[in-house]
Amino acid sequence: MSYYDIDDILADASKFPCRFNYDIPGLGYLEGNAGKEIRKNAKVELPLWLARILAIVGGDAGLNDEDALPFVELMQPEMFSPKVLNAIKSGPVTLDVHSINSHFYALAIKWATLFNDRDLIEVLNYMLLERCQEINNHASSVQLENVGRGGSQGTFMLTLDEFEKVLYKDSHESCKDTKKWVIRK
């Protein structure tokens, strides 16, 4: 996760639901009506790179009594709702992570660091380990005739998120190269 990491930038751009804690004039364009003020308790979808900062930085301490309250409050997004977490616990391998969010792991890590969420991390660890076994199975079953076409890997491949795709591609490449080298020098 570095500054020039494309996947990181893409992950940061995904929207999270937020609720404003203040009336702020001029910020109406976040809601879609430019030139107006934004109302307290308005619900807005903000990209994570903006929401993360606004959720930490507070309002003016001098003007307000409730200076500890940040500008916005991040609300529980759909992708970390109990429904999804239960689905992960019951069967990580059959879960369609890609349809939940294509950068699921990256966002989950960011979310968990933001809130110190131990439970989420535990669920993620379990999920990653379970899914890695499946990824390894798929990556190491190399048929040299099929390498060119790439298809016929089944529906599991369609459920991988971006991080898992990198994982799969790397291990698949190394398995393929080893096999090629063993077979004909």
């Binding site: 570095s2 500054y3 020039y4 790179w49 993360r52 900062i53």
Partner: peptide, 17 residues
Amino acid sequence: PEAQAVDDNDGSVKMVD
């Protein structure tokens, strides 16, 4: 001008790897 540095580590994301 304040956003012209390439090695700014105080921003939201560290620029120095």
